[in-house]
Nucleic acid binder design. Structure first.
Length: 274
DNA sequence: ATGACGTCCTGCCTGC
DNA sequence: TGCAGGCAGGACGTCA
């Protein structure tokens, strides 16, 4: 599933190929993929716009268009954006096709949970609920020990839940939360208010580390995630716990355990994580 | 304010 | 083989 490193990989690739391109057409296959405004207004507003740059905020991809508009994608669990030169390419589960001269940008989304929005750049927080509640990006300097400690020290929820809370760790998802907790040696079901200073220090450090490694490897492909040319990511080869339930821990050999925390599948090593 | 849980949606896996 | 049912999971809404 696309988390911060996957969305950042897509952002870099899209920025490279889309900057300066003009949207010459828009075809909606599944109208419920359009989050805002109406499908007709979405197509009308997009057509003829030029793409100035591609940004990212948490797991949102933001295509800045001329005329003060932003085209925003959230890929949720299985979304992908495929940039294809061929007009005849049949992309599976294509829900939205943007025509860019002789190329297509296809929003593929098997589960139809992802969304596309067309919003005036100044109005993003009012049209996208939750957008202005996003917390710090884990990779910025401001995401430090003080920041995280202030937000978790009074909380009784399992630390895993708070890492998935976008108002605290903006962009972190299930895979990198599990991997960061493994690298920090912290059990995912620990109540957040039981973490000591040294553990919070480790968690901040390891979360940054694992996200950077994810970006460096072009993201993690477990099932649906694809880069814009259809290639898979490379970080799945470096996973310690995610998707490795019942397999031996790569550090100590103990079987990786699968539990549910807040209805989310969670993997950890019962020996390495305390 | 917080935390637990249901909902959306559909492909895929499991079990009979 | 085929079908039914369960499951995954990010964000958000609801409820206590």
């Amino acid at each position: 599933m696309p988390e911060l490193p996957e969305v950042e990989t897509i952002r870099r690739e899209l920025h490279h190929v889309l900057t300066g391109k003009k949207i010459t057409g828009c075809f909606i296959v599944r109208p419920d993929i359009i989050g805002y405004p109406s499908p007709a207004a979405f197509c009308r507003g997009l057509t003829g716009r030029r793409i100035m740059k591609v940004d990212r905020r948490a797991k949102y991809l933001i295509l800045r268009l001329d005329g003060g508009l932003s085209l925003i994608f959230h890929l949720r669990l299985s979304g992908a954006l495929i940039y294809t030169k061929s007009q005849t390419d049949k992309i599976k589960y294509g829900r939205l096709v943007l025509r860019l001269g002789s190329n297509n940008l296809i929003f593929s989304e098997p589960r139809v949970l992802g969304r596309a929005y067309l919003i005036e750049s100044d109005n993003i927080p009012s049209c996208l609920q939750g957008f202005n509640r996003l917390g710090q990006e884990p990779l910025v300097r401001k995401f430090n020990v003080n920041y995280l400690r202030d937000r978790i020290i009074h909380r009784q929820a399992p630390i895993k839940n708070l890492m998935l809370d976008q108002s605290i760790c903006a962009g972190t998802g299930n895979i990198y939360a599990d991997e960061a907790l493994f690298r920090a040696g912290i059990k995912p079901d620990r109540r957040a208010n039981t973490l000591n200073h040294a553990e919070i220090v480790r968690l901040v450090k390891k979360l940054k580390e694992v996200l950077r490694a994810g970006i460096k490897n072009g993201g993690t492909t477990v099932s649906d995630y694809r880069r814009i040319d259809g290639r898979t990511g490379g970080f799945q080869r470096s996973l310690n716990v995610y998707g490795r339930e019942n397999k031996p821990c790569l550090v100590c050999g103990t079987a990786i355990v699968y539990i549910k925390i807040g209805n989310r599948g969670t993997r950890y090593c019962p020996s390495c994580q305390k």
